[in-house]
Simulated scan of single mutants.
Amino acid sequence: MDIVVNEELKAYIEPLTPEEHDALERSILAEGCRDALVLWGDVLVDGHNRYGICQKHGLPFQTVQNPRFKSMEDVHLWMIDQHLGRRSLSDYQRGVLALRKREIVAERRARRAAVESGAVAAPEAPAAPEVVAAPEAAPAPLPPQDSLETREALARAARLSSSQVVLIEKIQKQGAPELVAAVKAGVVSINAAAAVATLPAEEQAAAAAAGAEELKQAAKRVRESRRKAPAPSPAPAADETPGRTDEPVAEASVTALQQRIAALEAENAALREELAALRAAQTSSLSS
């Protein structure tokens, strides 16, 4: 049987570092390929690194089919769950995977609701694929525990705190590609990256290019500017500005307050996370 490597699936999860790949290769050369490659029809789902190493050295390997896969979404969800259970992932990587899972689950629920309401017709479920381009199937029912609608549920799925999820969401939404790459590489902490992500994209990129120390300093400047930010001025009474209504001023004041509250919430989340890290380090020091 010819195994098909789908490049989209291969790139769906963060690749191994060169050091991790070398360690896996040494292990397979010494002990053989112990874990079976997971297939969907002839498409390789799990084991891309093992498959490549076995092909390179002409080593034997085993394969197994997963009969529960009905669509590419099923494959993605399975891959996410498999990797969320691995200890080698960083906190940021687990958070990104959990957010990705929430998005898939939300889209699936929305489609199911549309089908149940009669807005769209239910798609037919095809058989397992024999080629890479497999048609999409009707999604399988989602168990209640798969609901990731709250940050608390999302945090549990990723083994993170709710405050960490908030920070990772901010980085994902506002972070420049250079900043995201720095977080993935471990150059900057999640807390610092979330602060830097509030800066314009050009400033984020410049800080990331300058290295870890500049990223720390940029995060420090952001936090200090939040602490020094003046409170919004109260809106003047309507009779103090003849011929004008106070509605635009009031709206500006509310917007300023909302922005200030959001900044304080993010700062509090970062401080809580730093405190938790310090406590964990202290506990580890005492136990050792």
Rank of each mutant, 00 (worst) to 15 (best):
L24K: 00
V222W: 14
S189P: 04
L9S: 15
A237G: 08
A263L: 04
E213Y: 05
N191Q: 08
V75R: 01
R223C: 01
E274W: 02
V249I: 09
A122W: 05
E124P: 01
A262T: 15
A122T: 06
S27C: 08
C33I: 04
I13G: 04
S117T: 12
V254N: 08
R108L: 13
V222Y: 04
S71H: 01
G175T: 07
A157E: 08
D2E: 12
E19A: 08
G243C: 07
E149Q: 09
C54L: 02
L286Q: 03
A237L: 12
A110W: 01
R100V: 08
A157S: 07
V131W: 11
E31M: 13
D46P: 04
D146Q: 12
G211T: 02
R159L: 03
T283H: 09
A185Q: 14
R111A: 14
V43C: 05
H57K: 13
P230E: 14
E73D: 14
P143K: 11
L264K: 05
I190D: 04
R108N: 02
A262S: 07
S162T: 14
T17S: 15
D22W: 06
N191E: 11
A194K: 05
V254S: 11
T198I: 08
R272A: 14
S285L: 12
I261D: 13
A195S: 07
G47W: 05
E240I: 02
H76K: 13
A119M: 10
R34Y: 07
H57Q: 04
T17W: 13
R87H: 05
A235T: 11
K216N: 14
E247Y: 12
S285P: 03
L44V: 14
Q65T: 05
Q174I: 01
V5Q: 10
E265W: 11
E14W: 10
R272S: 15
A157Y: 01
S288N: 06
